[in-house]
Design a protein around this nucleic acid. Structure first.
Lengths: 242, 242
DNA sequence: CGTCATGTTGAGCGTCATCAACAGGAGTGG
DNA sequence: CCACTCCTGTTGATGACGCTCAACATGACG
């Protein structure tokens, strides 16, 4: 599982072994548990091994905005290594198993093998690219396109870690996200999410099952969303310097 | 000017000298010139010495979404060091002077002084934090609060590089952003921007001059925006590892 | 069998987009 | 110096997209 960490990030060589040597503190979590709270000063980073998590902020009025969804292989608080105080909360979306790695161990590793900083750094850059795309998404796409884009993104990310299933044209993947969480992630109301999902279903683009989602017509969904996966940095794992 | 690069980023010591030794290729640009285009593979990073720039993406229909505003001291395409292909375009907003630094020189510097990677890395993390806040901003704030938040953010960033002027309660700073650019940055229409600005002026919160803006009532604007500057990582420059 | 979380539907209304027109200033060329 | 154009800001009218409130349906779970 942890191999994803590096393979998703980008190519590496025998320092995969070095990364593997990092001490992992595995932990099983139920849904809706906080990994990191806003204002915390974590002393370790979390790697999601199984299950989903999300990051969110809240405003004065108490309404939440989900700013990122995280799937197995992600290190949602890698930033805590360098930015001491977290500016948001990270919560499990489903049952999840998470491995914690002490900051000290990572820093020590980077001291021994300085060039390993690049893959981690690049991971945070891809993270930032995803945020940029979310700005575009919530900034000026209509509800249907907005959801379509989100589904395309999540499909692409899940696909890169082998968590999708393709049968004919249908692409199925786990989807533990409720409509109200989807509303908080997309900046729409629950009611409107509901109707927009119905529209996407009626147009034959997607299908939802209990805890999973199926994209029935990828070309159309893709076109509707105006989706371009480049920003995910998945296809061109960068030859890292040094 | 370049001292801002490190001072804004975070504390450093005598390797400021090392950073200073980087070869700079200064260039004067007029407004509306592209620094980097979507799809480019830059071989150098840009540091904004004077003037403003912005990053944007466009969708199929041709409408632009501005995803970031950049001010003197920023390195808007630092990411190009590790992510070869740019997923967006960077354009000058005003007349600007920009210094370019070859990737090779930065990589060489980091090879000599590996721990210098941390300040640069942290810079990209703060960048990402700003994107997260933009997601919240365009995701679920109303027009007036959205603009108020943007003004607070830009004030805070400009203040940190000494580009604001305070006379009594009034805080004045350069503002080369037209209303239609503001619309593209905030995901609102030009017309609505215009009316929202009028409202902010009518409520005595801000005042706009030709190329500058004045915050007349910071407490009220701040409260309206629900602004919390923590995410900018300015007050707690992190003691860097190693 | 009740409770709770989630999903679904309807009605009414508000925020904000769109379309259109116009005003003022800056720069340009005659 | 005077059109002229272009860019920016401003205003009005109209309506759509999406929100809110409210009620109800469904399944999971104890």
């Amino acid at each position: 599982m942890l191999r994803k960490l590096t393979s998703v990030s980008r190519l590496s060589d025998e320092d995969i072994a070095a990364v593997r040597s990092l001490p992992l503190m595995p932990r099983a979590l139920r849904a809706d548990q906080d990994l990191v709270r806003q204002g915390d000063r974590p002393s370790q980073c979390a790697v999601i091994v199984d299950g989903w998590a999300y990051r969110w902020k809240t405003d004065r009025s108490g309404k939440r905005q989900i700013i990122a969804l995280h799937i197995p292989g992600d290190m949602p608080d890698l930033m805590s290594l360098l930015v001491p105080v977290s500016d948001h909360t990270i919560t499990t979306l489903s049952e999840a198993s998470v491995a914690f790695i002490p900051h000290a161990a990572i820093l020590e590793l980077l001291r021994r093998v300085p060039s390993l900083a690049y893959p981690f750094w690049r991971d945070t850059l891809v993270d930032a690219a995803v945020f940029r795309e979310w700005v575009v998404n919530v900034g000026h796409r209509q509800a249907t396109e907005r959801l379509a884009h989100l589904f395309c993104e999540m499909w692409a990310r899940l696909e890169s870690v082998g968590l999708v299933e393709q049968r004919g044209d249908a692409r199925t993947f786990p989807w533990p996200v409720t409509q109200s969480e989807l509303a908080e992630a997309s900046g729409l109301s629950v009611v409107h999410i509901n109707r927009t999902l119905q529209e996407l279903r009626a147009r034959g683009l997607i299908e939802t099952q209990r805890q999973s989602m199926t994209i029935l017509d990828w070309p159309k969904l893709h076109a509707l969303a105006d989706f371009n996966a480049d920003y995910l940095g998945l296809e061109a794992p960068c030859a890292r310097p040094r």
